[in-house]
Amino acid sequence: MAKRHSRPIIGVLAVQGDFAEHLHMLESLGVEGREVRLPTDLVGVAGLILPGGESTAMRRLLHRWDLISPIKSLAKRGAPILGTCAGAILLATKIADGDAPVLSLLDVEVRRNAFGRQLESFETSLIMEGLGSEGRSRTIHAVFIRAPEILKVGPSARAVATLDDGRIVAARQGRILGIAFHPEITGETGVHRWLISEATAALG
């Protein structure tokens, strides 16, 4: 049984990528983060972050250390999961151009490197739908790095952020949230706050 904590422990997948930036963000919000490299690291976490990184490398490490099914059961138990960039690719039910899906927790189809190579990485502002109970839509600053795009949002999920040109860059399905950009490197705290409040709620 999960112990009652005043604040939940949030796991951050630490097999590869910018997990330190996410841990730093959690720390700045006064929440304990934990690096997750093996299934045992997931015991007692109330929420999980899948960071930015190279999704092909992360996919291999997830399979190699049998992390897929424990993460799926964590989601099944109602724990919130946030995936940024590569993390969103890991969450998707479909990956364009042939790659098999990894966690299949978010009903979207994504395309990797949808904007092109590094020279097409960019910064922009966009409107993101409010996530929490008190949330209203607001403009946020976002950095996209060799970013994926959400091509299609299935019936179980919905788009929560789009670019000016209409391309979808964030989608949510209950407590699962996948976004194509990196709030952890711009200091945009809203998404992490949402994850923490959902994790607190899930703890009961």
Binding site: L119, T124, F144, I185
Partner: peptide, 26 residues
């Protein structure tokens, strides 16, 4: 499709940012 028209490319955040995404890797 490339980056959206009004977006800024090749900023310090995007340059440094790609390296951040490579961390913990080979």
């Amino acid at each position: 499709m490339p980056a959206p028209k009004r977006a800024k490319t090749s900023t310090w955040a995007t340059k440094k940012g790609l390296a951040q995404m490579l961390k913990g890797g080979v």
